[in-house]
Simulated scan of single mutants.
Amino acid sequence: MKTAHDLVAEAKAQITEVSVEEAEQAVQQADVVIDVREPDEYQAGHLPGAINIPRGMLEFRLSNDTALSARDLNLVLYCKTSGRAALSALSLKNMGYLHVRSIAGGFDAWAEADKPVVQPQMPDFE
């Protein structure tokens, strides 16, 4: 029986994963940056310009949104540490998307490298 770790390892062997050092350029060149974490994770902080499509809805959203259905889009995916993004990247590859990359280490690695992060703004009540 395979574990989640086994599935992630298999996915990573079949996708393109970019290091944190390469990620900033990949993000700048991307047509779409997709955060596949849950909405509460996204709202707590995310990459600038990223859209949130949780992993469980990814295939459905991309299939039903004409702006995201072109198979030649340059896509960059990330999650918290890279497991969900790797599984998502493999799924999109299997759907025929040609240019899908995942960020190694995910959001945690991005933030630890002091890359730009969008943080929620709390209203000032004073």
Score class of each variant (00 low, 15 high):
115 K>N: 15
7 L>M: 12
26 A>L: 03
3 T>F: 02
125 F>N: 06
103 I>Y: 13
53 I>K: 06
99 H>I: 03
124 D>H: 11
114 D>C: 12
24 E>D: 15
91 S>F: 04
27 V>D: 01
33 V>Q: 07
125 F>H: 07
121 Q>Y: 00
52 N>F: 13
13 A>P: 01
117 V>P: 02
10 E>V: 02
57 M>S: 15
117 V>Y: 05
25 Q>G: 09
51 I>M: 12
65 D>T: 13
65 D>Y: 05
28 Q>F: 12
13 A>H: 00
116 P>Y: 03
42 Y>F: 15
120 P>V: 01
1 M>T: 13
37 R>T: 06
68 L>W: 11
33 V>C: 05
90 L>S: 00
6 D>W: 04
85 A>C: 09
24 E>H: 15
59 E>H: 07
120 P>T: 01
107 F>P: 05
57 M>G: 10
63 S>M: 12
20 V>W: 14
9 A>D: 05
75 L>V: 07
46 H>R: 07
18 V>M: 09
62 L>I: 14
123 P>H: 02
14 Q>G: 00
44 A>G: 13
19 S>R: 01
64 N>S: 09
110 W>K: 09
99 H>P: 03
40 D>S: 13
52 N>L: 03
109 A>M: 06
104 A>E: 12
108 D>C: 06
43 Q>N: 13
71 R>G: 06
54 P>K: 11
71 R>D: 06
89 A>N: 04
56 G>L: 12
36 V>Q: 08
113 A>E: 03
17 E>L: 04
